[in-house]
Design a protein around this nucleic acid. Structure first.
Lengths: 237, 237
DNA sequence: CGGCTGCTTGATCGCTCTCAAATGGGGTGG
DNA sequence: CCACCCCATTTGAGAGCGATCAAGCAGCCG
């Protein structure tokens, strides 16, 4: 991937179907000109929780974990962002600090704009603001659903839902079943579903003895997806 | 409140400090012209869950409960909206159906626009889209915080937080302390905090015997707010 | 005054957290 | 290539929070 993209047709923005879709080539060029490219290795952070929020990001490659910590030290994964998704944009409008830390879980590449550029872009191209509204709205709907599930469902069901979600976000067919193609520890799965790594471990062990999954160190292969779906719908057991 | 507002200065929009702030009088007139006024009595609904989403609302008066139901019949309060807040706007961008029902808990008055009007307004006045982004973003941040609290905190603490939130949203000083000025049943408090009415009832009873609150039928008066704050911060007990 | 709706309270059960310790895989440095 | 160490994971034991089930009580409205 070229760093100073020589022409817009080779620009990562040309293929973007999220924040900058439905824009003209000229507009994309303008947007591109204001952007800065950022790369992070796995484990590095784009920003930390409570840090002054003055940039936002569009992820081109990799995977980012948005993580909130409580004063007591509990960690919760607010969201995993993938290619084409934006993050860090909420606090730019009113908020002052990032409400979560953004950690690269894989090698990542992102485009980034500062606060001034955002307002300029959205002021000139309302479609950008509307696209952003769509993305933030989708995220809000998702968060509400997760809240509801956390409030009303058992852990096993929530973990099943989470695993299926990760499968949909990029499960890869392998001989033994479907592999989740990124490192995912019990700890992280617990932080995402609102439980502890111990409980996740017990659940995965149980599924493994039933032949539903096959697990390794930070690795999960789903052998019988239909049974996971049944658990997610509370039909099993 | 006049029904066919004769001049913009008397229009409810003139005082709006949320979605339509920082707009000119001419712009407000245009917006007003596209609006429809909607009134609901307590208990009536603006829309139901899963209903086709084609309008969104700006609440001028009253209070609206956004409620999600699961297939199993569990109810969760996604949010309470007050004066100046918008609701029903998220599914207009991509979603098809309302993810929650909007129920008036008091007599309500709202302005409403249809999908076409929204896109027209936001296309012509980017500031509207930016304001909407701010509001949806704030709601998202709030939802994340609630998710985190639900995942990591005990019920009593969450209930204390919820009561304090309602106090901030319009607590009224009365001789005995601070009154929450709208009907709020144990059931609703449970649906908001992710627990059952039974547990809420036990908690309020315990607080009452300690002299922290005084409760009645769908009514709560806080006598010692500082002790509630202590519980919310997990300092008590 | 009767009935409805919301609230209280008891008893019990079980899911899930917590604390504790052992096990194992994988990468690294010698 | 091997040994070691670190980190992820497993597993056990126990406690307890809060849900569930089950009555009974009390405002409030018609």
């Amino acid at each position: 991937m070229r760093n100073p993209a020589p022409s817009i047709s080779q620009s990562p923005l040309a293929a973007d179907q999220s924040l900058f879709k439905d824009l003209s080539t000229a507009e994309l060029e303008h947007i591109q000109a204001l952007a800065r490219t950022v790369r992070k290795e796995a484990g590095q952070s784009f920003f930390r929780q409570n840090q002054e929020a003055n940039r936002f990001y569009l992820l081109l490659k990799g995977r980012v974990k948005l993580m909130q910590s409580t004063a007591e030290g509990h960690q919760v994964v607010a969201r995993y962002a993938g290619k084409g998704e934006i993050f860090g944009c909420v606090p730019l409008f009113g908020g002052k600090q990032y409400p979560a830390a953004a950690l690269a879980t894989d090698p990542c590449e992102a485009l980034s704009w500062d606060r001034g550029a955002i307002f300029q872009l959205m002021g000139q191209m309302p479609q950008v603001a509307i696209n952003a509204l769509h993305m933030v709205g989708t995220e809000l709907a998702d968060m509400r659903r997760r809240y509801q599930q956390l409030a009303t469902e058992r852990v096993e069901r929530r973990v099943a839902r989470a695993v299926l979600r990760f499968v949909e976000q990029g499960g890869r067919r392998v001989p033994e079943g479907v592999l989740i193609p990124f490192a995912l520890s019990r700890q992280e799965l617990g932080e995402f579903t609102g439980t502890t790594l111990h409980t996740v471990s017990r659940i995965l062990s149980a599924w493994e003895t039933e032949g539903i999954v096959k697990t390794g160190r930070r690795r999960i292969i789903i052998r019988q997806p239909h049974r996971l779906v049944a658990i997610a719908q509370d039909l099993a057991r």
